[in-house]
């Protein structure tokens, strides 16, 4: 998109003036749009937004997240999803409609410390996020190593239509599960896992440098020009 203007901004800087549509992380006061974050401002046809470079994970419905079971009651598991809100996974959604708190013990499915891949089913300002594990690839992740990255940099780790994931997965022979909440699980042979984590850290550090893909390829010793 050649007509999109990008520049670095900090909170309070004017990103644009006049008639635009605010998309994300801008504050409109009168005719002016101010950035509310440290990040990259984009002004284009669609509107004005700032892509933030730091910040907490705020859940959105439909997000895939990777979380850790930290507690449970008779009816639900409490899951740490690397956010300011703890999430809940209701027992009924796991055991099915005839779940009975008197007969079913939650620990028979998930124990404290288990890592889950889950989807955010519901979340708004008034209640904690609700998780679901119905769907392919969701549920307990039995093996692998977890890495945390800045949640705002997850899109770069995924890459254009998943290109960055594929580059790393193919070069290291590992499988990556990337939560929108910045928690990544890497599964594979030990050498591959070490290389994957190096690549993930590189993406995190250089998320917005121009030749990121090339740098990752160099690190993973992928022949230049190879298509993921």
């Amino acid at each position: 998109m050649p007509d999109v203007k990008r520049r670095y901004v900090i909170p309070g800087e004017v990103v644009a003036e006049g008639n635009h549509r605010p998309i994300a992380n801008v504050l409109r006061v009168g005719e002016k749009f101010y950035s509310t974050r440290v990040g990259m401002a984009e002004v284009g046809h669609e509107g004005v937004r700032v892509i933030p470079l730091s910040g907490p994970y705020i859940p959105r419905v439909d997000d895939l997240v990777v979380g850790k079971v930290v507690d449970y009651s008779a009816f639900a598991w409490e899951v740490d999803i690397n956010s300011c809100f703890f999430a809940f996974l209701p027992a009924q959604s796991v055991f099915g409609r005839d779940f009975s708190p008197a007969e079913d013990t939650l620990t028979s499915k998930f124990a404290i410390g288990d890592i889950l891949a889950a989807r955010v089913i519901a979340f708004d300002r008034t209640r904690d996020p609700l998780l679901g594990i119905a769907g392919p690839g969701l549920g307990r992740i039995p093996r692998g190593e977890t890495v945390k990255i800045t949640p705002t940099k997850v899109p770069r780790l995924i890459g254009k239509r998943g290109s960055m994931i594929r580059t790393i997965e193919m070069a290291t022979n590992c499988r990556l599960t990337i939560g929108q909440n910045g928690v990544v699980v890497v599964n594979g042979a030990p050498e591959g896992v070490v290389m994957s984590i190096k690549a993930i850290k590189l993406v995190e550090e250089e998320a917005h440098s121009a030749d990121l893909t090339q740098k990752v390829q160099t690190l993973l010793m992928v022949p230049a020009g190879a298509q993921a």
């Binding site: 998109m1 990008r6 520049r7 670095y8 440290v38 990040g39 990259m40 984009e42 892509i51 470079l53 730091s54 899109p155 770069r156 995924i158 890459g159 254009k160 239509r161 250089e206 917005h208 440098s209 121009a210």
Partner: peptide
């Protein structure tokens, strides 16, 4: 945050 290079971002997801 911007110690290096010009800002770029690819469309992703």
């Amino acid at each position: 945050y911007f110690g290096h290079g010009e800002p770029i971002v690819e469309e992703n997801e």
